[in-house]
């Protein structure tokens, strides 16, 4: 474990200081450089050092540094469709086939339609809310729920990262400042992609800072 000693100058007495763990040093370095808690919101798409979030196989001392979701603007498509679906019965009611149905059947048909719209909204929201990208002081994690019944969780240690780039193209991405961060790793999964995440430039900066600290530790020869 990497250690850093600091001296306590209280009462002009030097005392043996407590060693600071490697990961804590990394976290302190990141916090000093990028701040903390400025981006916290429970439903937010970009959060640094979120306090009230934890994930399934998180170690006790592992701390989340960046917590990401796709930018909220990426939900615009299904939101617009949902609004359209809500208004659709106004058109349906004039269709001959439906007009000729007894009124009780028409009513149940509209109930079924709105249940479908609710299910559509719920599924899209859950998909956006729970498909997350997490960077901790030890690794990065990609949580994907492909449908309601298929889940994929990938992770890679930070010291396996070889290359970090980001892509930001198009009017919407430039205007709302979101893009895709691509991380090349030496692990089984060759490439991680943080798709359509906010502030990709800042994410790359933080990742580079994390890598810098990892490299420093390697140079100092103190491996965790």
């Amino acid at each position: 474990m990497s250690v850093v000693y600091s001296s306590n100058q209280k009462n002009n007495q030097s005392t043996i200081a407590k060693p600071i763990a490697k990961s804590k040093k990394i976290i302190l370095g990141i916090k000093e450089k990028f701040g903390t808690g400025r981006h916290y919101h429970p439903g937010g798409a970009f959060q640094t050092f979120p306090q009230k979030i934890s994930f399934e196989n998180q170690d006790q001392k592992e701390e989340i540094i960046i917590f990401l979701r796709r930018h909220i603007i990426t939900n615009l498509g299904w939101i617009l469709f949902s609004l359209l679906f809500c208004l659709a019965p106004v058109v349906f009611i004039y269709m001959p086939m439906i007009k000729m149905m007894p009124s009780n059947f028409q009513f149940i048909m509209f109930v079924l339609w709105y249940l479908f719209v609710l299910a559509f909204i719920l599924e899209n929201f859950l998909s956006w809310f729970f498909n997350v990208y997490i960077v901790t002081d030890e690794r990065m994690i990609d949580v994907d729920f492909y449908s309601l019944i298929y889940k994929k969780v990938s992770d890679a240690k930070l010291d396996k990262i070889e290359d970090v780039t980001y892509v930001q193209g198009g009017l919407l991405q430039s205007f709302f400042n979101y893009g895709t961060v691509r991380i090349q790793t030496a692990g089984t999964k060759g490439e991680f992609e943080f798709e359509d995440v906010p502030k990709p430039g800042l994410i790359v900066k933080i990742l580079n800072e994390l890598l810098f600290h990892e490299e420093q530790e390697k140079i100092e020869g103190k491996i965790r």
């Binding site: 429970p42 439903g43 979120p50 009230k52 979030i53 934890s54 994930f55 399934e56 149940i108 079924l112 249940l115 479908f116 299910a119 719920l122 599924e123 859950l126 809310f129 729970f130 997350v132 949580v143 729920f145 309601l148 019944i149 889940k151 969780v153």
Partner: peptide, 28 residues
């Protein structure tokens, strides 16, 4: 039959939300 399918679907959604919250736990 369609209404029954929706009830089953809602049950699956409940179960899936439980699994999702277990994977990623937050204030919401």
């Amino acid at each position: 039959f369609a209404l029954g399918l929706f009830v089953i679907f809602a049950g699956i959604v409940i179960r899936q939300i439980q699994l999702m919250v277990r994977t990623l736990n937050g204030s919401l």
